[in-house]
């Protein structure tokens, strides 16, 4: 049987990798991926504690809702990235038009 500590240490490692990514990556979508790592590390904790400490399913419900939240945040964040991308592209095109004129 795998002891609780092993789950926790793997989750801590995943959390730290996520923190490293957030500190060092520059691309917005990539930072979003690192945030998903952090969400997942917390979820591993929740499910592991749900089994080993609480002995009930509270942690699993929490984890399920975290997945929902992650989906919402990813959707909104990507919508903003798209919108921004379109504007910056648009801005460049405007500049090009100005040069021609």
């Amino acid at each position: 049987m795998i002891p609780l500590e092993h789950y926790l240490i793997v989750s801590a490692a995943l959390f730290s990798v996520g923190v490293f990514g957030i500190l060092t990556r520059r691309n917005a979508v990539n930072v979003l991926m690192c945030i998903e790592l952090i969400f997942n590390s917390a979820n591993i904790n929740l499910v592991a504690f749900s089994r080993f400490i609480e002995g009930a399913l509270g942690g699993q419900v929490f984890a399920l809702l975290v997945i929902v939240v992650a989906a919402c945040e990813a959707a909104v964040a990507l919508a903003i990235v798209m919108s921004l991308y379109r504007i910056t592209k648009q801005v460049n095109l405007d500049k090009a038009a100005e040069l021609k004129g």
Binding site: A28, A42, N45, E73
Partner: peptide, 27 residues
């Protein structure tokens, strides 16, 4: 848009970190 992107990235990190803390508290 830029403000919103900054907000969501910063916010997601803060709440993610908070979530990790809450999971430990649950444990």
């Amino acid at each position: 848009n830029e403000a919103s992107l900054k907000y969501i990235l910063f916010g997601a990190v803060s709440t993610g970190v908070m979530l990790f803390g809450l999971s430990l508290l649950y444990g």
